[in-house]
Design a protein around this nucleic acid. Sequence first.
DNA 1: ATATGATACGTTAAAACATATCATATGCAG
DNA 2: CTGCATATGATATGTTTTAACGTATCATAT
Lengths: 150, 150
Amino acid sequence: MSTKALRKEEEDNLLRRADDLCRQNNLRLTPIRERVYRELVQSGGPVGAYDLVDRLSSEKKRLAPVTIYRALDFLRDAGLVHRLATQNSYVISHGQPDVNAMKIMFVDSKTGETIEVHSTEVAEAVKKAAEQAGFKSVSPFMEVEGEIAQ
Amino acid sequence: MSTKALRKEEEDNLLRRADDLCRQNNLRLTPIRERVYRELVQSGGPVGAYDLVDRLSSEKKRLAPVTIYRALDFLRDAGLVHRLATQNSYVISHGQPDVNAMKIMFVDSKTGETIEVHSTEVAEAVKKAAEQAGFKSVSPFMEVEGEIAQ
DNA sequence: ATATGATACGTTAAAACATATCATATGCAG
DNA sequence: CTGCATATGATATGTTTTAACGTATCATAT
Ligand SMILES: [Zn+2]
Ligand SMILES: [Zn+2]
Ligand SMILES: [Zn+2]
Ligand SMILES: [Zn+2]
């Protein structure tokens, strides 16, 4: 089985998962929202909002930026998409909501490529540091820049 | 001794430290760069670039945004200032370059208030996670959003 | 004395990113 | 069917950051 086929299966899984999640929470995964999500899934990495505008626009119909931002907001609220603040870009959230883990997005400084890792160890260490800082709760998402080996 | 006096001493220390650092590395802490750094020190928290434009402009002379951005770039390259990507703002880096520690900026989701904590525990846990992700090196700076207790 | 190089700053403009506003459409509950 | 909430279209604007080009200043070389 080719890696392409594997990828395709994974894509379909993610799409189904998103669909189910929305159905179960009475959220409407409208066509535009689904197209944005699908584009992020297929890209395999972070994509900027204006990139999404380009990719989802056709000759006859150009989407307005605000349309994309609204879809992104919906997907983020649903927990399906993360915003990468350091990159001004958006990336799918994969992995089940492992509630005790820190979701770390490692971002390659050069290419912008990202890899998501979930770690309870980091979550605990950060929680300890947060208490030290007088913070009672912290986001389960972090972004760390670095360099990919090779 | 009043807290105000204490604060003033701390400010002077930071200014001196910055001055020394630049001198030792043949970096030129010019008047504009020093004013930007001083403003960040005195503000006691993160400040946006356009805020700095306003604060450092006078009736007769209005600084251009790019002037501030250039000063900020210099200060960041020198390791004196951090950019907070989630806030589009800039904040002084205090604490000696504790090379083995992760410098965590906790950002209050509501007010934008920040507290910096250095943690070797977090650094180690993140390093482990990074290896898992195929990252050979990671930035010693992180930003974590959360809520301050009270 | 004059030329060259290096760095910082001024000025202008544009790119890149994000939101506001109001009109229209669409789905859905009563 | 009707009315209401929600989603999208269309347009404009706001915000943040960088690009491009020129000038000023000072040091060093010719
Ligand atoms: Zn939202
Ligand atoms: Zn995730
Ligand atoms: Zn730089
Ligand atoms: Zn620091």
